[in-house]
Nucleic acid binder design. Structure first.
Length: 330
DNA sequence: ATGGTTTTTACTGCGTC
DNA sequence: GACGCGGTAAAAACCAT
């Protein structure tokens, strides 16, 4: 199978240089710093396999892949502008006129009804927002799919377009286990966070029969570690600590971003990387106070020993051990 | 609307480089 | 003195009812 690298117009969020997309592996990787911009993309090349050139030529039969994110699924008919017919014979002036008319009407019909037109507008908004958020194609498609359902059920009627688009995208992120916060989505849509949250609940009710689980803490940690440049061992350590503790009740009702931030902070301390609270707080979009509070709770309730087993303290020990002692590895 | 919980804001004091 | 850190009180945001 042929292996193709397609370069795209996007630039790396880290170094600003161009990004090479490797569609074979389904990843978008920055060519200079190696940052993985997107992963787990669908392979967007042909979905067939050709053993030789002849077979390949025979099998090339389609244009762009079918997509839910265009209002007609990308399956529109385009009438060509050539002056010859399929046999290569020149068309008569009469036929040319007729084709010109057909072209005109085809264009009109394509987005004929008002529903079609508004669907088309919203779907293009969804595409735009997805681009802004660097979302994998699967998420965009999922969002488009839910929006179609909403449009069909007329739920989206007389509601903010950006709000509905944002809610669809946010839901798609959750379903596809892609970590994008409500904050990020609302930034990308220029819509109020509360509006999107409200619509999200509505969308959930209208389109989802099954429970959509919240993102795992591990996802939050990975994302956080990705946004700040940090030693991978910090991530491993953070995830290790998290997996030992995460079923603890001390996190009940606490915002996951803050919990993840504090695991990353503690891990960066333990591993000697020493990432300042401010930096982690900024990347996680929580405050330093929250990181401190979560860290205190973790270190007050658990002893982190040298071999990195985490054990619960009993009541008397809880107050005795302070932060720094814990950081000195028990 | 309300009340309980969590997070943020703003500020203070301490130790270190 | 700038910086990172830990702490607190009060305001703001959030959430279920």
């Amino acid at each position: 199978m042929e292996r193709r690298n397609r370069s795209s117009q996007k630039s790396c969020p880290f170094c600003g240089k161009s990004i090479i997309g490797d569609c074979y592996r389904g990843e978008l990787i920055c060519s200079s710093c190696g940052f993985v911009v997107e992963d787990h993309n669908e392979y967007q090349g042909p979905e067939w396999k050709a053993m030789d050139l002849e077979e390949k030529q025979r099998k090339v039969r389609v244009g762009a892949p079918r997509t839910l994110s265009l209002h007609d699924n990308g399956l529109t008919t385009v009438i060509g502008t050539g002056l010859k017919d399929s046999h290569g014979i020149s068309l008569s002036p009469y036929m040319r006129m007729s084709i010109k008319k057909m072209k005109k009407w085809q264009k009109r019909i394509r987005t004929a009804s008002s529903e079609e037109r508004s669907l088309s507008a919203v779907l293009s908004k969804i595409n735009e927002i997805s681009n802004n958020l660097n979302l994998p194609k699967t998420v965009t498609e999922t969002a488009a799919h839910t929006y179609r359902i909403l449009a069909k059920k007329k739920v989206a009627k007389s509601r903010s377009i950006m709000g509905m688009a944002g809610a669809s995208i946010y839901l798609a992120c959750r379903k596809c286990r892609v970590s994008r916060s409500l904050k990020e989505v609302s930034r990308a849509t220029n819509a109020d966070k509360r509006t999107i949250a409200k619509y999200y609940r509505l969308v959930l009710k209208e389109t989802e029969k099954e429970y959509v689980p919240p993102l795992s803490l591990g996802k939050y940690i990975s994302k956080l570690v990705n946004t700040i440049k940090i030693d991978p061992k910090v991530e491993r350590l953070a995830i290790h600590l998290m997996s030992e503790i995460s079923n603890s009740k001390i996190f009940d009702g606490k915002a996951p971003a803050g919990i993840a931030a504090s695991f990353v902070y503690i891990s960066s301390m333990l591993s000697g990387a020493h990432v300042p609270q401010r930096e982690i707080a900024e990347a996680a979009e929580v405050t330093e106070v929250t990181i401190r509070n979560r860290s205190r709770e973790i270190l007050n309730n658990f002893m982190i020993r040298q071999y990195l087993k985490v054990i619960p303290k009993d009541g008397d020990e809880i107050l005795a051990d302070r932060y720094h002692k814990s950081l000195n590895l028990g």
